[in-house]
Design a protein around this nucleic acid. Structure first.
Lengths: 232, 232
DNA sequence: AATTATAAGTTGTATAGTTGTATAGTAAAG
DNA sequence: CTTTACTATACAACTATACAACTTATAATT
């Protein structure tokens, strides 16, 4: 087998072992050619294969960068899970983990601007991108305001569609907080990531056109696979 | 007598007269074929005989290189690459293939007797004897214990000298394991040997006078050119 | 402190030269 | 008739070198 192909396989192995991480630069062609003891053109031929696969891309004068194939999840005024994913030509899917109706906690009541004696509906879902579970969401919704929410959501599996049926034609973000957490074993299992993998956690409120809060929710994103693109 | 055999004898005579010295290149096949007035394939046939004898080695795209014969490499309590070679009146040279700082693997941490969370420095070098690359070494050194190791080594190109500067005046082998491997195309290219040529692989630990491991390393020797002389 | 030159390093491209390999053909020897 | 030695040609793989285009870091200048 030709040398350039062997080098290609060697580099591919390094990449899959995360020796060179997405977004980072590879050693320069000069350094690589020394490492493998070949001419620069031979290295370039190996790299070309990886470029063709979309794993690497190069910038003249700058270097060779490992392609960041993390999904770019847009967060702005109007955040729509399915649409976000369809826009990037990926396939979205939502599955329900559990639901629960109980009294609102102090924080929940405050954020939903409801009386703390009122009941809320809690829904936990997993969002899949191309069949890979990468997003976990926990929603708190006023059960008094939307008593039929869960029944409809269970069929629609979409917040946007459910709200439309309930007469809310549009809604948007009041605010979004982003923090980082480590995945515990339960989350790791649900989200198909390793224990202690970094998770991006967003806490936010969606409100209707009258500025009344609809949901107070939290969403966890697997950091290795998703990057949040903040829009203004 | 056939032409190719006569050319072979003529070239062999030139080689033994040191007309072409070890480490140097022969004239190209094109030039030789013109000189002897034969087709390139005929020259190649002559050269093949010399390659079989281990006197010549060819590199695609580069040329044909003159090699030395078998070198005796001593392995005992105190193994010193340069000194070993100078003692036999040969010229040693070390070139760096690559260096890398990363977390220790389980085996590396165990052999260096360090915590597996610590970082290690990896250095890969090629050792040349009379300008013929024959030895490849991969060293693992605690980056915590010797944070400046690579900077110094890069200038000194000698483990002994580097350690002396770092305050380690002497070191010796804890143990040496010898196994055999086949050269893959990358190694064969680096070490100027044929694919599948046998390589002697030594795995060893060098420790200081307090018996603390300094380096956990592996060295590959081209079996055709180097024999290991084990001392007790 | 901010801006501008300068230098050094990186990738892209072009050209020429080298060895490896495959195929086809000729001539002589057994 | 088959094998061996040798020629002829072509292409693939790899090296060597040079230069252009571009980026980045550093030094110099304002």
């Amino acid at each position: 087998m030709s040398i350039y192909y062997q080098i290609y396989e060697s580099l591919k192995k390094d990449l899959s072992n995360n020796l060179y991480k997405p977004g980072e630069k590879l050693p320069s062609e000069k350094v690589l050619s020394k490492r493998f003891g070949v001419n620069r053109h031979t290295i370039r031929r190996s790299l070309q294969l990886l470029k063709n696969e979309g794993i690497l891309f190069s910038k003249r004068g700058s270097g060779i960068i490992v392609h960041d194939n993390r999904f770019k999840y847009k967060i702005g005024k109007r955040v729509r899970f399915s649409q976000n994913i369809l826009n990037e030509n990926y396939i979205p899917e939502t599955t329900i983990l559990r639901s629960e109706i109980r009294k609102a906690s102090k924080i929940e009541a405050k954020n939903l601007e409801i009386n703390s004696k009122h009941e809320i509906l809690l829904i936990e879902t997993i969002g899949k991108i191309n069949n890979v579970p990468s997003i976990k969401t926990k929603r708190i919704i006023s059960n008094k305001r939307f008593p039929d929410f869960f029944d409809i959501f269970q069929k629609q599996l979409s917040i946007t569609k459910t709200l439309k049926i309930l007469g809310v034609n549009d809604f948007f973000r009041k605010n979004t907080l982003v923090t980082a957490e480590q995945a515990d074993s339960i989350q790791a299992n649900l989200l198909h990531c390793k224990i202690n993998s970094p998770l991006l956690k967003t806490t936010y409120i969606n409100q209707d056109l009258n500025l009344i809060p609809i949901e107070y929710s939290q969403t966890w994103f697997v950091g290795e696979r998703i990057q949040l693109a903040l829009e203004n």
